[in-house]
Amino acid sequence: MARTTVKGTGWIGRLFFFDLLAGLRLTLRYMFSKTVTHRYPDHEKWVPYERHRGHHFIKTNDEGDVNCVACELCSQICPCDCITVIPYENEKGDRRPKVFDINLARCLYCGLCEDACPADAIKLGQEYEVACDDRPKLVVHLEDLVAAPRKAADGGQVRPAKLEPGSGRRSVATAAAGAEGYDWWRHIRKGK
């Protein structure tokens, strides 16, 4: 961070308050630098990096079938015990989950389920707006997981957004052309 240490000015420095002046100069520079506040949720939204661990999603294969083979490894490794998988055999004779519930109220977004999965099925995506006013709503099911947003390929930027009307009131990044995001870290003052 920016420093204001004033050294080696001797008694002249003390007499004319060089230290206070240095502080004033620093705050003056800040006063006329760009603000860094995200105008979330109705003007801007932070799209997280690809590595971000948010709301889970389940990948599907070319046939539109879920990748998950219902091996239950994820629910075994989960430190919070929040994944419920009940397998069944589908008409093609494959083992697939009949029930796949994740209790997001318990989940700590550690990503262990993603690491454990042998079938490249469960992943943690970009979605982070999971707040709601009713705890049962936090238990998400298979169809929610298939529909959930993927990892953000263009993550790590602040995008123009608007507040979605309705009861959910989520902030959605506007996809329109010209709605370019910017790298937020560019605005942070570093060093001198």
């Binding site: 705050t27 800040y30 006063m31 006329f32 630098s33 760009k34 603000t35 860094v36 506040t37 105008r39 003052r189």
Partner: peptide
Amino acid sequence: KIAAHIQQRPGPM
């Protein structure tokens, strides 16, 4: 506003 801008915030908006 001055407080906000010194702290790199926009203040009341």
